[in-house]
Design a protein around this nucleic acid. Structure first.
Length: 163
DNA sequence: GAATGGATTGTCT
DNA sequence: GACAATCCATTCA
């Protein structure tokens, strides 16, 4: 279950990967909505986006955190680094962690999110109140309040619990 | 052809 | 609270 996400909308958004215009890397953003856009950042973390449609502009939603529901054993195995115990709520806490827990790599780029092994579905329910605020971890365009998360949820990323 | 910086995380002090 | 790890697309010469 997705508990945290950020929107990156259009070439006007300096933090959006589409800001420099169409390139080989951000090509999925210019394709049809409902497609996964995966890329590697900081040389070590894969981040997964859902390509959306925003009045004709290239746009995507970055999936930042999930609450694990199924396959927790497998996630534990993938995330396990040291011998330290791993909290269930931490398995998919943060955009880099969740791709690791789900085994998402660059191979999942451009996958159809409406079908197939990697998909997102609307279950029509929200577990808690949704808060909105500024996006995390970016330098440009940090003023846009395009991050949303479930208030107080244990799997929401960030240095401190946000409400 | 070479340099630069980023939508992060875990570890160390 | 600060910093290293590490790769690829873009930018500059």
């Amino acid at each position: 279950m997705i508990v945290e996400a950020e929107a990156y909308i259009g070439e006007d958004d300096p933090a959006c990967h589409a800001a420099p215009g169409p390139t080989a890397r951000n090509a999925p953003l210019y394709g049809p909505p409902g497609i996964a856009y995966v890329y590697l950042n900081y040389g070590m973390h894969y981040l997964v986006n859902a390509v959306t449609e925003a009045e004709g502009s290239p746009a995507a939603v970055l999936v930042r955190a999930l609450q694990p529901i199924d396959g927790i054993d497998l996630m534990m195995k993938r995330r396990k680094v040291g011998g330290r115990p791993l909290q269930e709520a931490d398995l998919c806490r943060g955009p880099g962690n969740l791709t690791k827990a789900l085994g998402i790599t660059i191979k999942e780029n451009h996958l159809d999110l409406t079908a197939g092994p990697l998909s997102i579905e609307d279950r029509g329910t929200t577990h808690g109140r949704v808060s909105w605020g500024p996006r995390v971890g970016i330098r440009k365009g940090a003023d846009r309040p395009w991050r949303c998360w479930i208030a107080g949820h244990a799997s929401v990323s960030g240095p401190r619990a946000r409400v």
